[in-house]
Amino acid sequence: MFVTPAYAQQAAPAEGETQAPAGETHAAPADAHAGETHTETGAEHGSGVFPPFDPSTYPSQLLWLAITFGLFYLFLKKVIVPRIGGILEVRRDRIAQDLDQAARMKEDADAAVAAYEQELAEARANANTIGQSARDSAKANAETERKKVEADLEAKLAEAEQRIAGIKAKAMSEVGNIAEETATAIVQQLTGTKVEKTDVSSAVKAVRN
């Protein structure tokens, strides 16, 4: 058992008190020889025993450990832990918020790209329709032009035909007159009688028809 010489000296005046190693035995004789205990020095304590196993230092170490560690624990619990926890929390929130914002911005960018694509497609479609309508109108114009020209030609053709018909009719009627005169002359020569003009013309008409 590590009973220090220093402790033994101290306990000796306590008249055969049991030498329990713990500090409790100090309790009773404390008042009796307060003077002696004050004469002890640190060097005396360590004179014979390995300091960590010197029980006379235990109460002091325990008390001061309780005080310092207790206050340290309270300080950490009340001040430091909430503070660092708060800092980390704020940072986590901030990062999450920034990520959200980034995601939102990406969405915006995507939407802008989509709108651009759509507008491009619309513009393309517009261009197509404009081209189509231009082509259509050009076609229609050409068509009407052609129709006009055709109608013109038609009219000219009709006019020409009419003229030909007129000329033909005139020629035909000339043919009638010549035939009548010829017939009248032939009949006069053959019969020697004067033939009525109307008779001749009706006869000629009958033959020609």
Binding site: G23, H26, A27, A28, P29, A30, D31, A34, T37, H38, G42, S56, T57, P59, S60, Q61, L63, W64, T68
Partner: peptide, 14 residues
């Protein structure tokens, strides 16, 4: 420091 017989001195350890 000594209170109630316990040696509670403020030491280099404290």
């Amino acid at each position: 420091i000594e209170i109630g017989g316990y040696d509670l001195s403020f030491t280099n350890s404290s």
